[in-house]
Design a protein around this nucleic acid. Sequence first.
DNA 1: ACAAATCAATCAATCGATTGATTAGTTTTG
DNA 2: CAAAACTAATCAATCGATTGATTGATTTGT
Lengths: 212, 212
Amino acid sequence: MNLPHDKRDKKDHILDVAEKLFSEFGYDGSSTRHIASEAGVNMAMLNYYFGSKDGLYKATLERRIKNFREQLVNLNEADISSWEKLHRCIDMYVDRVMNNNCFHRIIQRELSLNQRSETTDFITEILLRNVNEVKRIVEEGIKNGTFRKVDIEMTIASIFGTKYYLINSTHIAALMLNKDLQNPQVMEEEIKPRLKAHLNDFLKAHLTKHDI
Amino acid sequence: MNLPHDKRDKKDHILDVAEKLFSEFGYDGSSTRHIASEAGVNMAMLNYYFGSKDGLYKATLERRIKNFREQLVNLNEADISSWEKLHRCIDMYVDRVMNNNCFHRIIQRELSLNQRSETTDFITEILLRNVNEVKRIVEEGIKNGTFRKVDIEMTIASIFGTKYYLINSTHIAALMLNKDLQNPQVMEEEIKPRLKAHLNDFLKAHLTKHDI
DNA sequence: ACAAATCAATCAATCGATTGATTAGTTTTG
DNA sequence: CAAAACTAATCAATCGATTGATTGATTTGT
């Protein structure tokens, strides 16, 4: 329960706490009272600042999504090989996901609920850009003969699914890897480079045209 | 709202409805009133049959888990190649997951919540068996020289993550694939064989010892 | 064989607790 | 002092759960 220093810090502090609790207990599982007490503020402040619980929820999402948008890079123009594009894309993507794993847990759960809302559509639209970026790179690589012909969509499912498994099935992944995935240092120094290495390694094997 | 014929059918009917709603809205998002009305029974019947909401929840899980246990096959003894073991394992696994995607959505969400409970531990234990089964096959394949040396745990994360992406990120996956993933027939006739083909294809490329 | 007793199944009504939200009043700040 | 920031108290609504009553079928007693 770190006490904030000024107003800006305070709102951000509340958002930090809310994001953490939403990621742990889900939207319905996180009561406004719980969030307020955990953040060390009066319950009414949540409505004062964010209007409603839903407003608070959306605020936690929009804060990250804004950051998301800024980081969107266009690798299309780059005069580099398809391999290099893929390599850089994975590098950026893994960094982004691993550094905001609470946020990604939230949106993952949001997408796994079948109820379609404006929030869901919004998130879907954002994530679809990542998908299409990777898709374009692989398609181009196949077209220019660099890559082997593979099931592109399923390949993408494997790429994105691998990181989903690591950050959304923490319990099992932690037992399997025998690592403490709650520890940020372990994530940063061990898991992140290992995930990058694996994705690059498996994509190399998967996309390379081996002996016919 | 199909009306059941006898008591057994009725309990099963309630479990069917509960499973569907839990998978759609989550545990906290599914009220007992909603479940009861959707199942066409009086609210009190849920407590009468299952003791509590939590009891109903566990009953939905245990019904499938029981089935899970029965399907657990030991591929260890089989006198077949590592490739064949892996192939059969994936085949069984994909079938099982795709045929019970509501159930798998529930347990996946359960694992993504950070709160450890007896239910969580129970599920973790079950799923860990699948992980270890695959792990053993790959380890053995590497040891006897059939497979290339790879990051085993990350490879497993890719296998399980791929299906996870398809059934838990339905919105995005559906847009990416341009398929109706809510349609059971599409899942059965198109997605399932395609996923199997992809997993086998990518694992072949990934685990084969190519030119040194 | 037949009434009495017992049972599981079901219902409407309602319980206390908790939810998100709001109010009216107080303190802080510029 | 006036606006912004904050609080305690309280709101109606909904939550999961329980109650007592009723039904229809089954079992028991004679």
